[in-house]
Amino acid sequence: MIPTSNYLMLSAVLFTIGVIGVLTRRNIVIILMSIELILNAVNINLVVFSRQLGSVAGQVFAIFIITDAAAEVVVGLGILIALFRNRETVNADEIDLLKW
């Protein structure tokens, strides 16, 4: 049996890659994909602790997180389409109307 800490390490690495993607990329579509990576890293944590504790609650919460991810992507991409129609850009750092 693979020790739990290996899964946690994998989860931490995926989370870090996701955070780097969110913080460094300009394209909003790829920022949303990085958020998906972060949510999947959390899911790995939940499922491995579900195995460790012998309780199915972690898997149930992982299903809720997948639901949340679906809702977030739907609204985010809707906003992206509305934004592209008005501003003709998909770069996050060009949308700075509220920046002083």
Binding site: V29, L77, L80
Partner: peptide
Amino acid sequence: IMVLFLFVIMLVNLDIAVRQVQFNRQW
């Protein structure tokens, strides 16, 4: 979710974005 992503990539014209700088200044 990924089919939704691909649909939006096709709806939003990303040809210009491919030729631009991909990383922001604080990378």
